[in-house]
């Protein structure tokens, strides 16, 4: 019981801030008489969400689906690339400039190319989500593996550990905190990717729904789309933070547990 209270107390400021933003928003809209075509009030947006949920659900599902599939492939490819680049200096120095080059392309710009190749619909959204989240994963995993302390590597080498032994026992566990940090970035980026692709070329998904709603000046519905995206993003972020804390607790050490001689 005290635990729950302590958690509540710790979370109280951030919760208060979030609620405060919505309250200020609501009050400001009412006080200044802002039209709901410019900026709808949070209460209007929530009402729209409630009323239109049956129609919004298929779009939500589509966006979640493309994002997660793209993210899954992104993680798979990102980890593979990151491990291979991180475990060899030659590969690191060879591939890194290319990766930086690719990453500096605005991913939005490749959506038309994907549409050209695969047509409008699910595939470009998945691909965009994938390509946008590969880079942070590659860089983080590679960094985690490549920055093993040289002394530790010497110790392992004098034990006649193979490259694979070092990777498995030292490199990969060491890269885990970096990997999870990148996952939290990547999952939010994946949403950006899929929504952008849906906006450009799709007939389903939140991005597409928001495009149609804005062309008919249904601004509360546009904002409802934003709320859904924010909700999904936060939900997935929380899931990955939870897994992160479970898997890499050692990296978030608590000093109060320390013992001294």
């Amino acid at each position: 019981m005290t635990n729950i209270l302590a958690t509540l107390r710790a979370k109280a400021p951030s919760t208060a801030l979030i609620l405060g933003v919505f309250v200020v928003w609501e009050v400001a809209c009412l006080a200044f008489g802002i039209s709901d075509i410019v900026l709808p009030r949070p209460s209007q947006i929530l009402a729209t969400l409630w009323d239109r949920w049956p129609a919004l659900w298929p779009h939500t599902y589509q966006t979640l689906y493309t994002t997660l599939v793209g993210f899954g492939w992104g993680v798979l490819i990102g980890v593979t690339l990151g491990v291979s680049i991180g475990s060899s200096r030659l590969a690191f120095e060879t591939a890194y400039p290319l990766l930086v080059g690719i990453s500096s392309i605005p991913k939005v710009a490749v959506v038309p190319i994907f549409v050209l190749w695969f047509g409008a619909g699910t595939v470009p959204a998945v691909l965009t989500a994938m390509i946008i989240c590969i880079f942070p994963i590659v860089v983080n995993v590679a960094t985690g593996i490549a920055t093993v302390e040289p002394e530790l590597e010497d110790v392992m080498k004098t034990l006649k550990a193979s490259k694979l032994d070092i990777l498995w026992n030292v490199g990969l566990p060491r890269a885990m905190p970096y990997f999870f940090a990148s996952l939290k970035v990547a999952i939010t980026l994946a949403f950006v990717g899929s929504v952008v692709a849906e906006t450009v070329a799709s007939n389903r998904g939140i991005g597409n729904m928001m495009m149609i709603a804005s062309s008919s000046f249904n601004v509360p519905l546009v904002f409802a789309g934003l709320f859904i995206l924010a909700g999904l993003g936060v939900m997935l972020y929380l899931i990955f933070s939870f897994i992160e804390r479970r898997v890499t607790g050692w990296a978030h050490r608590k000093t109060d547990l320390a013992v001294t001689t």
């Binding site: 302390e149 002394e151 034990l159 026992n169 566990p173 060491r174 990296a251």
Partner: peptide, 22 residues
């Protein structure tokens, strides 16, 4: 070495046992 380079994700015992694994 001077730098103990223990693996932070392993317990003290697991750290000591690392060479036996290799």
């Amino acid at each position: 070495y001077q730098n103990p380079t223990l693996l932070p994700w392993l317990t003290v015992r697991q750290n000591v046992m690392l060479p036996l694994k290799i």
